[in-house]
Design a protein around this nucleic acid. Structure first.
Lengths: 347, 347
DNA sequence: ATTGTTTACGCAACCGATTACATAAAAATT
DNA sequence: AATTTTTATGTAATCGGTTGCGTAAACAAT
């Protein structure tokens, strides 16, 4: 028996073969007992359970996975872990998966297509039973997901989605949300509204933008469509927006930002630059992150139910795995969003 | 060959046996070639790689894991995913693990000891090569980690730690940080400082509290130690603190909160109740979450380097796995924290 | 008592890669 | 040319569960 100087004995592991020998039965009986197979007598099962407890038997998932060709593990790829929205979604997914006895392998693409590809490959090779993805902004090619679709491993997209055959998606109606946000600003009297966004390669952002355009066309007497594109939603980008506003001939009086964080930084920068919010400039964000209620004036926004999205993503993929939903029937779940009006956009 | 109505052919998987047959060599040669074993001729390796590419061969990790008895997977248990600090730490861990080719199985305890136990068991059975843990507030018993220590599977605690034999920990000097935060308030003229915290069962919080007490004893002419304990750091708990302040005979003029989020909510509630910050009441938080710079007045705090902590946790566990650090020599890494003075605590 | 059913369990193949050990062929040495 | 050494590959066991198929024993039915 192995031993080390500092800690005494290294606990050896027990296998079903050890238990079989100990009880004088076959390994098959041990396996069936542990899995509560109906054709094993209660008496035997009890003996096995007892012996398993005594010896500290633990199933070896490596062997079990190989035999069953499944891992009870779900892969998740997100652009980044450290965002309010994403971590909330993940929290929802984890809750559901954990309750169902599934593990979650989580990886981040950091908005890079190459990393997303790499992670997709890694997760495939780790043998995840299903994959949940929210796409990187950079991603333009979707062939790396073929390994999953070819082998009919359930693949689901949430938030940042793409329409692939037989892959369910979970989203909100981003176009309608963008439309409503813009409509709201117009109805509050804004006549020169800009839209601030990033990653227009992704449908989420493109659709919000197109909702914005649609509302302008429909409601605004002026219809001066202006997109201010930023590299990302970090504080550093806020200044670009302020610069744009300051140099605009026609004074900007409305800002629709497709991300709360950036909206908050823009508010701070605008206040610092001497603008009055909402008197001179009205502003609305997107997501309903907690930070919207911390900034002063409190930020109007679109509520995007992240936790619910996560739970649904988890449930949806689980029901695919359980076969209770036909894998062929790709579904699209559209969650309800909600316009939340706070101080930053009120007349 | 299997086929389905909707999608045509189900891609069958290739094994090393298929490749062996195809090339007229043994499976061993295939395996060695794919692993770039030195005793295989370059010519053969090239043939194998070529055939592998053609047939779309993918290694079956289930088999590989079983054979090697390792999974290239690291388990992580955190109290919750959706907190700024935690998701930042996770992001750091993921970065390191991903680069080293390791997968991360992440689960949350939701502050519950039972869930932490369950997750520990699940992760053990999934065969993670190492485990990183930040403890639940509830956890008082640590025996569930024995499965790991008994088998010498690297186990590391970060942030919410406990001192177990041979388990490295990564923390900051919470007592010193609590001391400095309190000292700062005292030096700003506060005479009646309260400390708001939760989960004092955890050393992080207990140490901040004891730093607070120490500073009071050392610097304050009054030394009126008062702990306001809340259930958690959510918005709902902020009112309790305001109630305490309002009903305090001796007017409270300093608040040291062991969490930024709660501090922010307290500021909002205090402002609403008509208090002037920092004039009447000075306040300091903990963590340096982004939200500290959104609230007005901006919140003084202790900078807690979450991303760095995550990266270090990842690196530390990897070097244990690579054997480059002696597993017996348990180490304790103490990260530098920093007092950040902003508007909320200035004279 | 004989035949038909259940019940409870064992046998052995299988999942797919890894690797210690053995060995044939090629190269180097004497 | 004979022998030693090196190189390249094969053989077969192993990792630890799972499960289709077969069967002895117990029970039920005729």
């Amino acid at each position: 028996m192995l031993r080390t100087i500092a800690q005494g004995f290294l606990k050896k592991k027990t296998t079903i073969y050890d238990l079989a020998k100990k009880l004088g039965v076959s390994p098959a009986t041990i396996s069936r007992s542990l899995n509560d197979h109906p054709s094993i007598s209660i008496k035997t099962k009890e003996k096995v359970l007892q012996a398993a407890k005594e010896t500290g038997y633990r199933i070896n998932k490596f062997a079990s996975n190989l035999s069953l060709q499944k891992s009870n593990t779900i892969g998740v790829i997100v652009p980044r872990l450290n965002s309010d929205f994403m971590s909330t979604v993940l929290s929802g997914i984890e809750k559901i998966a954990n309750n169902a006895g599934y593990n979650l392998i989580i990886s981040q693409s950091l908005e890079q297509e190459a990393k997303e590809k790499f992670n997709t490959k890694t997760l495939f090779e780790s043998g995840v039973d299903a994959l949940l993805v929210s796409l990187a902004n950079e991603t333009k090619n979707y062939e790396h997901f073929a390994t999953f679709t070819e082998r009919k491993i359930p693949l689901l997209f949430f938030d940042r989605v793409v329409d692939l055959p037989n892959c369910p998606t979970i989203i909100i109606d981003n176009e309608a949300a963008g439309y409503q946000a813009t409509e709201h600003l117009i109805k509050q009297g804004c006549e020169n509204i800009i839209h601030v966004s990033s990653g227009l390669n992704r449908s989420v952002y493109k659709l919000r933008y197109s909702g914005y355009k649609k509302a302008l066309k429909e409601f605004s007497t002026y219809n001066r469509e202006q997109l201010v594109e930023v590299g990302n939603f970090s504080q550093a980008e806020a200044q670009k927006v302020v610069d744009y506003i300051q140099s605009s001939k026609q004074p900007v009086d409305g800002v629709f930002v497709s991300n709360d964080n950036l909206a908050v930084y823009i508010i701070k920068a605008l206040l610092k630059a001497g603008y009055k919010i909402p008197d001179q400039i009205k502003i609305i964000g997107f997501n309903n992150d907690p930070v919207t209620q911390v900034i002063s004036p409190e930020l109007s926004t679109i509520d995007y139910p992240g936790y619910k999205m996560g739970k649904l993503a988890g449930q949806s993929i689980l029901s695919h795995l359980n076969g209770s939903i036909n894998i062929e029937s790709a579904d699209q779940i559209i969650l309800k969003h909600e316009l939340i009006i706070r101080e930053s956009s009120q007349k």
